[in-house]
Amino acid sequence: MSRRRELLAAEAAQWLTALEGADAARREQFAQWLRTSPEHVREFLAAAAVWDSLPGVSAQPSAAALVRLASRSDNVVALEGAHPGAANPKAERLGRWRWGWAAAAAAAALALAAALRLLAPVAAPPTMDYVTEVGEQLSVSLADGSMITLNTRSALRVAYSEARRDVYMGGGEALFEVAEDSARPFRVFADSALIEAVGTRFNVRKRPGEVAVTVLEGAVDVSPGRSGANAAAIQPPPAVRVVADQQARAAEGKVVLVDRDASAVIAWRERRLVFDALPVRDVLAEFDRYQAQPVVIADPAIAALPISGVFRSDDRESFLQFLDQMGIAEHSRRPDGVILLSAMERR
């Protein structure tokens, strides 16, 4: 039983006991918790199974006998109070750590906004931060009906005010489904790029030095912002209009537009990875976004081989087996857990 599982078990138990007569706000918190990851769903189902089978236990003392037992123990078992509480601080610490994505990303987002002169000198609107860990996905329903789904290892901050709906992307990838509201623009800030939308669906992936925006429905305007070649420009470069099945890549102060099958880009939502003649090293980099332990390519000749196929994002093992079966590469596990990928030995 791993530590993480124990923490999850403690959280699930707390929810089961807290849900009786819970108000809407509490239920919403619970729904949010449930939507953290498949592991949360699984743990809650397992805990609920135990919870629901407990009424069936027999061969236990009657209620009256229980009262006697419990009160007798009062004088003897002083340590007992420590048990139930023990799970709580741990769970809270985990919660703080998870949601407390804070200073660094926030400061970066604010600096970014300031640099773009977009932060009006008014009271800062209330913000919410959302973070996913490796392998997690998270959907967030916003007050205006918009929906944001975060992919693995992503972080963003939502700042809604009466005048605008702003989202700052700290990193990773997210799918935006924006409810229409022409009076309040919906804007995403990622590095120096600015993405502006009204009633549309689009995906943003932020990588070091590049922001890729893919549109599924409607249109968005992507401004590269002042960076790279345009860092010192007086007038920022103009925005580029991106429509469905197009992808805009903003890097170094420029926006490049290419045609792109948007459904393949958001296959991550179904935990699928779609590759069309992508080199092995890039395929592995995709998998690494979902895994704590990277794969090391021991043989540079393999790295550039093109791969096409559909894989489950949380199942790198099946991809490694695929390489093996196709006679492309074989893998071995070093004692320290690192997976080495090497060329197939010729027979």
Binding site: M1, R5, E6, A9, A10, A12, A13, Q14, L16, T17, A18, R42, E43, L45, A46, A47, A49, V50, W51, L54, H83, P84, G85, A86, A87, N88
Partner: peptide, 20 residues
């Protein structure tokens, strides 16, 4: 509530290989 949650975790962990 705390006792209940603690008891439930113990039961759940005891059934770990059965329930998950």
């Amino acid at each position: 509530k705390k006792h209940l949650a603690h008891g439930l975790v113990s039961c759940r962990l005891a059934c770990a290989d059965f329930a998950g």
